[in-house]
Amino acid sequence: MPSSRPDPVGQLRVSWLLLVVVGLVVAGVVVLAPTVGLLLEQRRDIAAAEAQVVEQQENVEALQDEVARWDDPAYIEAQARDRLFYVYPGETSFVLLDDRSALESASAPVPSATLEQPTRDWASAAASSFLVAGLTSAGPTSFGEPAETDTPE
């Protein structure tokens, strides 16, 4: 008499087959992962090397243009005049030496054309400074603005 239960051997075969397939997939990933990582790293290195080659080719082209400029006698003359201050016989060369920057020379204050009257007597200010410095025990950082003294004007 046939039983209504499914055959357990058939279920085991399916689960064993599933385990074998999953195991093979995992083994394939483990075996191929380092190779794929190496492939990606090599592609990245190749791309960097190609970019470096392009940059060096541009540099070589710029240097070749520079060499071509030096073949021109007018360029050589201009460089000798600018860099070495060479002149032809009979010419006079002038060199302007200005160690100030453009900002300093542009923002220099213009002196006043009128005389200004001092607001305090300098002699009494010097004497009071001398007396304060000699008679106090406070340090130099504690001094602020000197006190105004009553002096006849």
Score class of each variant (00 low, 15 high):
residue 73 P to L: 02
residue 58 E to R: 14
residue 102 A to Y: 08
residue 78 A to T: 02
residue 31 V to S: 00
residue 122 W to K: 04
residue 43 R to P: 06
residue 33 A to R: 04
residue 78 A to M: 02
residue 113 A to C: 02
residue 47 A to I: 01
residue 123 A to I: 15
residue 92 T to I: 11
residue 121 D to H: 06
residue 51 A to D: 14
residue 95 V to Q: 04
residue 106 A to C: 04
residue 66 E to Q: 11
residue 53 V to W: 01
residue 85 F to H: 11
residue 63 L to G: 00
residue 77 E to T: 12
residue 99 D to T: 14
residue 52 Q to G: 09
residue 114 T to K: 07
residue 126 A to G: 04
residue 117 Q to Y: 06
residue 62 A to L: 11
residue 30 V to I: 08
residue 34 P to N: 05
residue 100 R to N: 04
residue 96 L to S: 09
residue 121 D to Y: 04
residue 42 Q to V: 05
residue 59 N to Y: 14
residue 81 R to C: 02
residue 124 S to N: 00
residue 51 A to M: 09
residue 93 S to A: 10
residue 115 L to N: 08
residue 99 D to H: 11
residue 41 E to L: 03
residue 126 A to K: 05
residue 114 T to H: 07
residue 34 P to D: 08
residue 33 A to D: 03
residue 42 Q to D: 08
residue 38 L to H: 05
residue 79 Q to D: 15
residue 75 Y to V: 13
residue 92 T to S: 11
residue 79 Q to F: 09
residue 77 E to D: 14
residue 29 V to Q: 08
residue 41 E to T: 05
residue 28 G to T: 14
residue 36 V to L: 09
residue 62 A to E: 11
residue 65 D to T: 09
residue 97 L to I: 14
residue 56 Q to L: 15
residue 110 V to R: 09
residue 38 L to F: 03
residue 106 A to G: 07
residue 41 E to S: 08
residue 64 Q to R: 11
residue 48 A to V: 02
residue 117 Q to S: 11
residue 55 E to V: 10
residue 112 S to Q: 13
residue 73 P to R: 02
residue 43 R to L: 14
residue 78 A to C: 01
residue 97 L to Y: 10
residue 93 S to H: 02
residue 66 E to R: 10
residue 28 G to S: 15
residue 106 A to E: 12
residue 62 A to Y: 06
residue 40 L to Q: 13
residue 78 A to N: 03
residue 92 T to N: 11
residue 76 I to K: 08
residue 126 A to R: 08
residue 86 Y to C: 15
residue 39 L to P: 00
residue 117 Q to G: 07
residue 123 A to N: 13
residue 116 E to H: 07
residue 119 T to Y: 05
residue 121 D to N: 13
residue 72 D to P: 03
residue 47 A to M: 02
residue 72 D to L: 05
residue 72 D to N: 14
residue 126 A to H: 03
residue 102 A to N: 09
residue 77 E to W: 07
residue 83 R to Y: 09
residue 67 V to R: 12
residue 80 A to W: 07
residue 69 R to W: 05
residue 92 T to E: 13
residue 95 V to K: 01
residue 35 T to L: 13
residue 71 D to T: 03
residue 71 D to Q: 05
residue 42 Q to F: 01
residue 118 P to T: 00
residue 84 L to D: 09
residue 106 A to D: 13
residue 121 D to G: 09
residue 107 S to N: 06
residue 31 V to Q: 00
residue 91 E to C: 07
residue 43 R to Y: 10
residue 90 G to S: 15
residue 56 Q to M: 14
residue 44 R to W: 00
residue 93 S to Y: 02
residue 47 A to E: 07
residue 44 R to V: 03
residue 83 R to D: 15
residue 103 L to M: 02
residue 66 E to S: 13
residue 87 V to Q: 07
residue 61 E to M: 12
residue 83 R to H: 11
residue 109 P to R: 06
residue 68 A to P: 01
residue 36 V to P: 03
residue 58 E to N: 15
residue 119 T to I: 10
residue 126 A to E: 06
residue 99 D to C: 10
residue 80 A to Q: 14
residue 92 T to Q: 12
residue 121 D to K: 04
residue 63 L to S: 00
residue 75 Y to A: 12
